[in-house]
Simulated scan of single mutants.
Amino acid sequence: MSVHDELATVQRCLDDLVRSVGRLEKQLGGGGLEIRRVRSDTTHLRESLALLRETAVSAAGPAQRPDLVTISDAPYDPSLWVDTDDEGLGARDRHAP
């Protein structure tokens, strides 16, 4: 998986966690120290993931386009092909079995 895919997966899981903590908070009541700490931890996780996403995007930078290679239309020197076989046809001085 790419970094982008991994970050998206983590974001979905974190969103599920936030929803679950919200439901738990409604069931237990929002006044307890423990549930406030869990809520605070999920908030910190969201902030940390946002920072990580920014870092990953800036580290990857813009997509680099490879340098283009120009291929000339001029014919190649025939002497380059003197000692080569025709692909699929075998050598010129030999016969197929």
Rank of each mutant, 00 (worst) to 15 (best):
G22W: 03
L24H: 02
A59N: 14
E25A: 11
G61I: 00
K26W: 02
S48K: 09
A56K: 15
L14Q: 14
L89M: 09
Q64R: 15
H95D: 12
L68W: 11
R92V: 04
V18C: 11
A56H: 14
V3K: 03
A50P: 06
L49E: 09
L45P: 00
S58H: 13
A91N: 02
S58W: 04
T55M: 04
V18G: 03
L17G: 02
A63N: 12
L14D: 08
E25W: 06
T42G: 03
D16C: 01
T43D: 14
W81K: 00
R19V: 11
R46C: 05
G29C: 09
S58F: 04
R46M: 07
L45Y: 05
V82Y: 04
A91K: 14
L28T: 04
R36S: 04
L17T: 12
W81C: 10
L7K: 01
L33P: 05
S20L: 14
V3C: 09
P62F: 13
I71S: 09
D86Q: 15
R36G: 12
G88E: 08
G31Y: 13
R12L: 08
C13Q: 10
L24F: 07
D85V: 15
P97C: 11
T9M: 00
L49F: 05
P62T: 09
A96M: 14
I35T: 05
E87V: 15
A56F: 06
T84A: 07
A60T: 03
T55V: 14
R53H: 14
R23N: 05
A74N: 07
S40V: 03
R23Q: 04
T42L: 06
Q11E: 11
D15T: 10
A63K: 05
M1Q: 14
T9W: 07
D67W: 00
R53V: 12
E47N: 08
